[in-house]
Simulated scan of single mutants.
Amino acid sequence: MTSSNPSPDLTGPWHRAARELAATPAPEGLLRAGTGGRTLGGPVTVKDVQGWLRVMAAPRPGGKIWEGANLADVLLAEEIPRPALLGELAWNDENGLVFQAHLWERLQGRELSPTPNLTAPAPVTDRWWNDLRIALDHLHRTSAPAGRQVMTQDYIDRIPRFIPALHGRDLTVGRWETSHGDLHWANLTTDPLQIIDWEGWGSAPVGYDAAVLHAYSLTEPATAVRVREVFADVLDNPAGRLAQWVICAEIIQAADRDPLHAPLKPHVQRLAEELLIS
């Protein structure tokens, strides 16, 4: 969502967090703003360990995004590959904003895409696909904290606004499972596989993670086919079709205000139509 409030300059808070966490900014490192300008991250070193420090601003502490990274660090199994959390910090400023800093170990691989969708086929191996499937199976067997949801049934009931052909269809979710919630290509690394950005994880319809990854692969058909092969048992059934309609609706909704999603809109519209006759 866009906000009418200007994003704060996070350069000062980022350097404050680095000092208080005893992290030395990498001399060659450039700070990188996140989507919407609400986060700022950059490379650091802590006791000879290479890390990544990210600072987020919010009007108040608490809530799903604020708590997500810490809960993931505590509750998710080691079999789900992700950067280790090395430290965290939170404080208020004189203007009433609150800041949260997380210090992670540096990624072992590189992010597969600078954007959620692909602009070239994913350069990953058979082992990578197997590791991803194993990691997600572990995640989906994990219990999410009560009330922690990627989305609600109320939202899903509204998706015919974006896919009109679904009007009158029963969209009730039969089963929910713990999901990453934002499993696109900017949140995955090359070998070795790591899954990043756990702020929004929680309960989602069964098959949602695979549906998200498939939707963001549609700009590269060969990779989209591979996603469908790896997750055929998840996607090719009524629950999987519903999960795919959900992410199609989300992308269609976002496309009108977000240039990152606009190129995906015709692809997911076509997918949504194909699912109606499958």
Rank of each mutant, 00 (worst) to 15 (best):
H15L: 15
R16G: 08
E20C: 12
G29S: 10
G36C: 08
G37C: 09
T39G: 09
G42A: 09
V44T: 07
K47V: 12
Q50K: 13
V55A: 04
M56C: 11
P59Y: 01
R60P: 12
G63S: 04
G68M: 02
L76W: 02
E79S: 12
R82T: 04
P83L: 01
G87T: 01
A90S: 15
E94T: 15
N95C: 13
G96K: 11
A101M: 02
N117P: 15
P123N: 07
V124E: 05
W129L: 01
N130M: 07
N130Y: 10
N130I: 07
D131S: 05
D131R: 11
L132C: 05
R133P: 06
D137F: 06
H138W: 08
T142P: 11
A146F: 07
D154F: 11
G168E: 03
L171S: 02
V173A: 00
G181N: 02
H184P: 11
W185Y: 05
W185G: 02
D191P: 14
W198R: 01
G200K: 03
W201P: 00
G207I: 04
Y208H: 01
D209Q: 01
H214K: 15
S217D: 05
T219N: 13
E220I: 13
V225L: 13
V227N: 00
A232V: 06
L235S: 08
P238K: 04
A243L: 03
C248M: 03
D256C: 01
D256I: 00
A262E: 07
P266L: 02
P266Y: 03
